[in-house]
């Protein structure tokens, strides 16, 4: 798994690629939290276009970030999830509580 980050005012954009499963979920959690604190970000945009597999641990990590960020008054958006990932996101109900966008700019505008 690779993570690329861009900070835009109070929104952090994370571009994740590779597999988001139980082996890397902890890593993903720690890195994201650290980046959020470092950039003093409130909102999070997750670009998932490079993710080819996600399992329950990955979902748990995303849900955990969602919980923390919304508690502090921020928002979470998902961008460009490939179909097989999107299917799992849908089943898990995450798409019911977060918004999903085609591009990062769309997401940033909605923040």
């Amino acid at each position: 798994m690779n993570i690329e980050s861009v900070a835009n005012r109070k929104t952090l954009i994370l571009r994740v690629s590779g597999e988001l499963d139980m082996l890397v979920a902890d890593d993903f959690r720690r890195k994201t939290d650290a980046l959020m604190v470092n950039h003093c970000s409130r909102n999070l945009v997750l670009n998932l276009s490079g993710v080819n597999f996600i399992d329950s641990s990955g979902l748990g990590a995303i849900l955990g970030r969602y919980k923390n960020i919304t508690m502090g008054g921020g928002k979470v958006a998902l961008v460009g999830a490939p179909p097989q990932v999107k299917r799992i996101l849908e089943l898990s109900g995450i798409l019911r509580i977060t918004s999903e966008f085609e591009t990062e700019n769309d997401a940033l505008e909605a923040m």
């Binding site: 979902l59 748990g60 849900l63 969602y66 919980k67 089943l91 898990s92 019911r96 509580i97």
Partner: peptide, 15 residues
Amino acid sequence: VRSGNLPIGILSHIE
């Protein structure tokens, strides 16, 4: 039969 409800154990308000 399918439905997408959030998994339990994290969020306190679940529908």
